[in-house]
Design a protein around this nucleic acid. Sequence first.
DNA 1: TTGAAAGCGCTAACAA
DNA 2: TTGTTAGCGCTTTCAA
Lengths: 342, 342
Amino acid sequence: MTRVKLIDVARAAGVHPGTASRALNSDPDGRVSAETTRRVVETAKRLGYVPNSFARGLRTARSFVIGMIVPDVTNPLFPPMVRGAEQVLSQAGYTLVLTDTDNDEASERAQIERLRSRGTDGFLIATALWEDPLVEELGEVGVPAVLINRNTAVHRLPYVGCDERTGIEVSVDHLVGLGHREIVHLAGPQDTSTGRERASAFRHSLRVHELPVDPDQVLICSSYTEQAGVEATTRLLASGRPFTAIVAGNDLIALGALETLAAAGRHAPDDVSVVGFNDLPLVDKLTPSLTTVALPLREMGALAARILLAEIEDSDHFGPVAQSLLGVSLAVRGTSGPAPGR
Amino acid sequence: MTRVKLIDVARAAGVHPGTASRALNSDPDGRVSAETTRRVVETAKRLGYVPNSFARGLRTARSFVIGMIVPDVTNPLFPPMVRGAEQVLSQAGYTLVLTDTDNDEASERAQIERLRSRGTDGFLIATALWEDPLVEELGEVGVPAVLINRNTAVHRLPYVGCDERTGIEVSVDHLVGLGHREIVHLAGPQDTSTGRERASAFRHSLRVHELPVDPDQVLICSSYTEQAGVEATTRLLASGRPFTAIVAGNDLIALGALETLAAAGRHAPDDVSVVGFNDLPLVDKLTPSLTTVALPLREMGALAARILLAEIEDSDHFGPVAQSLLGVSLAVRGTSGPAPGR
DNA sequence: TTGAAAGCGCTAACAA
DNA sequence: TTGTTAGCGCTTTCAA
């Protein structure tokens, strides 16, 4: 009941193992006659031959395994990216290994270490911080890796994200079009590229509309969570700053804001407008439904995987490091409406 | 710049590779002196030795990889199970490989094949159908595997799930306590154990309360989706059967029901009560918020992983196949209220 | 307690 | 075009 191996196939087909190997791998230079190839392939199938990945990996130093590192799969932002990547990779014969870090650097380091010891061929990294020694190390060691969703300050690795800036700009355009003039931004954490880009794009958009930009118009949330949204909104209300609209760093922050505002007697969309970011599942079912920026998450995952494969398969392709941004769209729903008094 | 290997450690420590191997693996019978062990371990750490998994796997036929098969990670039911399993496995030195099948048998077969060819040590399977040839094959071949969330008719493999029956019973108790007498069930697909168990428990609960059980009181949904919930509810309304409460097969079906009912002018909780199952993220934020059964998903993942490891590590442990059910709780929220006219 | 040696299954360089 | 051979890095049996 032992597994059938290459030598069994070779014997059954009446050739030597080396030849069988070449035939099965459709070796480009070690030319094998069409007839032999056919016979070997047919024999392998008949015997149910499955190559031993350990032996192959030991010999070739290639694992056909890609590691994907996310903060937390439980966050619905990530599963679609995972699916997109998975599809591309599995089609190319690779296996995806997923690991969560919970934004903990020690844990992340350990995960990467473990994966590297398994001979992982490349990494898809969705956990990058703006200043990220870990990611920079990876870049220096020359391990094939692609950043997804979050970039680093040093653009050493290829990056696939979405057009955050435009997402924020259309949000602000939308609000200004509804007559809002006093708009605030509950920014995501500033140690992530997304938090920084969105905040920067927010300020820029106001200037484009020739609206004043006060420093206290951007409140930083310590994380992308509902709780952080509650805290920031509480601060905002306490500050006494007038506002009729909020651009939130993401949907969870928006939810925290809506809740806090409602508790203070201000309801969307009549008293205040709120726009989120990410378009998480079910935010369209809330009452009122959340106006938010939708991202092509699956496509981001797929593209990142393709770039990674290209990097792995012709490793001497030292072209310019790619920074790819995919388009976003604003889903206009119930939490945004005309500015009060218009 | 080549990776440091066992022989380097052995030389640096002044021992033979065999000894170094035994020292590093704290070999139970090949006894190594404490002093030697200390020296080898210290040297290995100093040189940054990382064992080559291919060589080890080739020699030992063990991969320390576990495959987890889910229908779709994008369904928020699964990520918490994945996290639970991941934590237990990674602590034990295993790596989790996740794959999605989209409920497609051919795809599932291919995924399992690929994972087996990689020498995967065991499987966590969340895709089981009530009649599932694929899973039965796995059981026969003797590959270590544990079913999670969904069971098969043939109880050949260990199973970890939740107490579906009690979940449904407390739901019915809750509704009956609110004065409801005409309760219907929008059952999940009957080719899954969850769909069957919940439907059966529903009928049982009615009998316990000495309520009549008509066949047309249980409507089968073709899948666990909102769309299927819409269709079933449409059929229900068309049938003209009177009802004041719905026990839905899961939250998505409940959402479809609420939507369809609202379109027909019947609103929860005043006109009709609706109870879901799973307690997905954000269903507590809807208006009205969804009354539903909450499951210990993370714990299910963790327990399944522990059982799998036990099966792998002492494979001669042919004890009775375990069927473990974890407890559930009813989250009473806004969609359930007193029966109309009470 | 440690050393020596074989071999897991495969691929690739070289020879024919 | 095919055969021969060596060896990837590790564990483990056997011998010392």
